[in-house]
């Protein structure tokens, strides 16, 4: 039951963040919504098995890798955004 709630939450966040990334026009907001979409996907991945036999360590390792890659990508995107604004482009 716990896992089902979080599975629904994860799918909801994934679609919410994904759609908002396309609907917002500001770069910072888009990076945030992309991160939220990613978190939703991780939540769905972890909650999908259903949790009877404990946590799946392979899924945990996958999501851990995902979190680190997400921060790396967010970092580069943010630096690109700031640099673009400094050079006079539209952010």
């Amino acid at each position: 039951m716990t896992a089902a709630i979080f599975l629904f939450l994860g799918l909801f966040l994934a679609v919410l963040g994904g759609l908002t990334t396309f609907l917002r026009s500001d770069g910072l907001h888009r990076i945030i919504s992309l991160n939220i979409a990613g978190s939703g996907v991780f939540l769905a991945l972890m909650a999908a098995p259903g949790g009877e036999e404990g946590v799946d360590p392979v899924a945990q390792a996958l999501v851990l890798t995902g979190i680190v890659v997400a921060v790396a990508i967010s970092g580069v995107a943010l630096v690109l955004l700031a640099r673009l604004a400094e050079l006079g482009g539209r952010s």
Binding site: L28, V68, A70, L78, L81, A85, E86
Partner: peptide
């Protein structure tokens, strides 16, 4: 990482955007 470091990165970018 998700809340702490990403939050710090967002704040740093926010500061740069505000200055320009």
């Amino acid at each position: 990482i998700g809340a702490g470091v990403t939050g710090a990165l967002l704040m740093a970018a926010l500061d740069r955007l505000r200055r320009t």
